[in-house]
Amino acid sequence: MDEHEPRIIAFLCNWCSYAGGDLAGVNREQYPPNILSIRLMCSSRVSPEHVLESFQEGADGVLVAGCHPGDCHYINGNYKTKRKIEMMSKILKDMGINPERLRLEWISSAEGGKFAKVMKEMVEEVKQLGPLDLSDVPLEE
């Protein structure tokens, strides 16, 4: 069987991380195609529910990326993101899901290299973890 190809949803803020992704493109930095990104205005828009929805729909990993602390285009949105994601990780762990499947990164619009690196790492890590299967088990065994 083919090696498992994970699918990862990335929520990118418009002003830094998405721009970093654009720059990665300009610089032709290569990374695996397993990441599908959704552009939001600010990382603070990401609700834990979107993370859960992604997992439920079959994502093996979720990346949330925003501006570096202090750089958020909306002044302080990313601090909220940070707290939300950290707390979300705790819950994932309690629920038996490896918290590494949810990753928060600060990627600036100048960090095309970092963008590509994060993508590579994340795909590699999630590959290691294997597929995430949230389909329901039978109630009666």
């Binding site: 603070s44 979107h50 929805e53 285009h73 949105g77 909220k80």
Partner: peptide, 29 residues
């Protein structure tokens, strides 16, 4: 238009135009 409040609202009473929850979920799906 950062949308932080839409993420905060515990009962979904706030949403962000153009980036509402249903749209984001539709993209995920």
């Amino acid at each position: 238009g950062c949308g932080a409040c839409a993420s905060v609202c515990p009962i979904g009473a706030i949403d962000q135009k153009g980036y509402d929850n249903e749209t984001i979920n539709a993209m995920i799906q």
